[in-house]
Amino acid sequence: MSKKVEDLTTLLEPAVAACGFELWGLEFFQQGKHSVLRLFIETEREEGVGIDDCSSVSHQVSGVLDVEDPISGEYTLEVSSPGWDRALFKPSHYIRFIGEEVNVRLTAPIQGRRRFKGHIQAADDVQLSLQVEGVLVQIPLMSIDKANIVPNF
């Protein structure tokens, strides 16, 4: 996780919690003069996250961002639910989804590959064990660029 994403997460987590949601994760993309800040929010409510929830969180977070001004230049704020193909951001996410199938993209190759698709066998604060084509692959969490659940309908 980049320092900027860490700082934004620390800053915005309390604002999201004040609205009654968990900050599932955050993505920040700098694109020249215009950047994108994308927040994923989660709830334990059975009906999940709705558009009014996203609007409420967006309003709350915008206030914090206006006061603290942590992003220079223009940016777009997006707030949404993690969705069926949710990205996994924290060690607790990998632990929660043990047994599920995931797509994983690495920052550097392991065993000559940067992309893996398999089932999570185990996870802790530093490592992910992934069953890929009958082989158990150990992946350091710090080597993961992006990981998403593969929806099973």
Rank of each mutant, 00 (worst) to 15 (best):
E78I: 09
G112R: 02
E101K: 09
G99W: 02
I41H: 03
L106H: 04
D53C: 08
S143D: 10
S92W: 12
T107K: 14
P140I: 05
P82W: 03
V137G: 11
C54V: 13
I144C: 07
K146D: 08
F29I: 14
Q127A: 15
Q60R: 11
L77D: 10
L23S: 03
I144D: 05
A18P: 06
L37T: 02
S62Q: 14
E13Y: 00
K33R: 10
P70V: 01
V135I: 11
Q121K: 15
G83L: 08
E27F: 10
V16N: 01
F21M: 05
I110E: 06
K3Y: 08
R38V: 07
T43D: 00
E46C: 04
V57L: 01
G32P: 01
G50F: 07
R45I: 04
G73M: 00
D53I: 05
G112N: 07
V79L: 10
R115Y: 12
Q131C: 10
F89D: 05
S80I: 12
S58Y: 09
D7C: 06
F28P: 02
G118C: 07
E44W: 08
E47L: 12
G99N: 07
L141W: 05
F29L: 12
A15M: 00
I95F: 11
S62R: 11
S56F: 04
R105V: 14
L26G: 04
E42P: 05
Q111C: 07
A123M: 08
F89G: 05
Q138D: 11
A122C: 15
A87F: 11
I41C: 02
V137T: 06
V36E: 12
V132Y: 04
F28I: 02
V104R: 02
Q138G: 10
H93A: 06
A108G: 08
L106Y: 07
I149M: 05
F28Q: 06
P140N: 10
K90N: 09
R105A: 13
V67A: 15
V5C: 13
E6P: 03
V61L: 02
E46T: 15
D7E: 15
F153S: 13
G50E: 05
V16C: 00
F97L: 07
C54T: 14
G25V: 03
T9V: 02
G63L: 09
R96M: 10
L136Y: 05
S129E: 15
D7G: 04
L77S: 13
G20T: 00
F40R: 03
G118Q: 07
I71G: 03
K117L: 05
P140G: 07
K90Q: 11
E78Q: 14
K4A: 14
W24G: 01
V57N: 06
L136S: 13
E78A: 09
I110R: 09
Q127S: 13
S143R: 09
V64H: 06
L136M: 10
I71H: 01
P91A: 02
Q127E: 15
P151R: 12
V126L: 14
L77N: 13
A122G: 13
H119Q: 15
D7Q: 13
R105P: 06
L136W: 07
K90I: 04
V16H: 00
T76A: 15
S62W: 09
G20Y: 00
P91C: 01
A17Y: 00
V102S: 03
M1N: 12
D85F: 05
S143E: 14
